[in-house]
């Protein structure tokens, strides 16, 4: 039993060490500043600038989060403050199933529904030129739908943990229910809300297959949400295994994985620490 537990703890350090060793090859050869801030990606000539992938990842994640934040907050507030308990009982399995649908199935749905929708309606609506629909925005919509159940679940727990007496205190001072939510409940829940979105962000940042299937995968720094992008996870998924013949390419992809791992870990850690602190007080 002790062995198993030690194994678990070693796993985290193991992953870090493994990825670091594997990507050391490229970190040694190319300065970190060039890896992170150059947009020159020509593996065959030994040029590895990750900027297009990093920027794409940031775009997709941010737009997805922007779409998810209002939806999550409104729904979680409605379910915990206004809605009949019966609706919450209906929503629980809905959220569970949405959270359980595999990412490839989301990707398939994106290809069948979202991509045509973006191509035929949204792009013309915003005056864009003809477009395949495989773009940052499609990726962000699919991603938003994927992280919404995950975030709502956390938010519901956070709103439920706020003592009822606090609501009663505000109401007894003549505030309406909405004012109570605005000035008291949201303020009380604020750290929890931040960490819920932090966890959602790291979930979105690492999501691979669903985004990969709808985002277009063109190596270029995107300048608008209707342009194709090429996020980091997609880079790894599309090229790994094929590139073993070029030693440094292999290392470059491991570097991408390391980058992903570190960013996700940091956001996860911060959010979880906030939640733990909340539980203590």
């Amino acid at each position: 039993m002790l062995l198993c537990t030690i194994f678990i703890i070693l796993l985290l350090t193991g992953i870090t060490a493994g990825l670091l060793i594997k990507s050391w090859h490229i970190i040694e050869k190319i300065p970190l500043s060039e890896l992170l801030f150059s947009d020159d990606w020509r593996p065959l000539s030994g040029k590895f600038g990750f900027l297009p992938f990093i920027i794409s990842s940031v775009w997709v994640t941010m737009v997805a989060l922007l779409l998810a934040i209002p939806a999550c907050l409104l729904t979680a507030i409605y379910l915990t403050q206004y809605a009949h308990r019966r609706l919450l009982r209906i929503m629980r399995p809905v959220i569970d199933i949405l959270a359980g649908i595999p990412s490839v199935v989301y990707g398939l749905w994106g290809v069948l529904v979202i991509v045509p929708l973006v191509s035929h309606f949204l792009v013309p609506l915003f005056g864009g030129t003809q477009n395949t629909g495989y773009c940052i925005f499609s990726g962000a919509i699919v991603l938003a739908v994927m992280i919404i159940p995950f975030i709502i679940n956390i938010l519901i727990e956070i709103f439920k943990a706020i003592p009822e007496e606090l609501t009663e205190a505000s109401l007894s001072l003549g505030a309406t229910h909405w004012e109570t939510i605005k000035y008291v409940i949201l303020r009380k829940a604020w750290p929890g809300i931040i960490s819920a979105f932090g966890l959602g962000l790291s979930r979105a940042f690492g999501e691979t297959m669903a985004v990969l299937m709808v985002v277009g995968n063109v190596i270029k720094i995107p300048t608008g949400i209707f342009q194709p992008g090429y996020p980091l996870p997609a880079l790894i998924a599309n090229n790994y295994g094929e590139m073993l013949s070029i030693d440094i390419y292999d290392s470059a992809l491991m570097f991408a994985a390391l980058l992903l791992f570190i960013i996700v870990l940091i956001f996860n850690m911060l959010s979880r620490l906030i939640i733990i602190k909340l539980e203590v007080t």
Partner: peptide, 27 residues
Amino acid sequence: ANIRKKMGLLAQRPYPLPMNIYNNVAY
């Protein structure tokens, strides 16, 4: 809200609003 305003409420434990001392009274 008006009916409730006519009745001050003191609970078993103090539940100060999540704001500063001044605003708790001014709320």
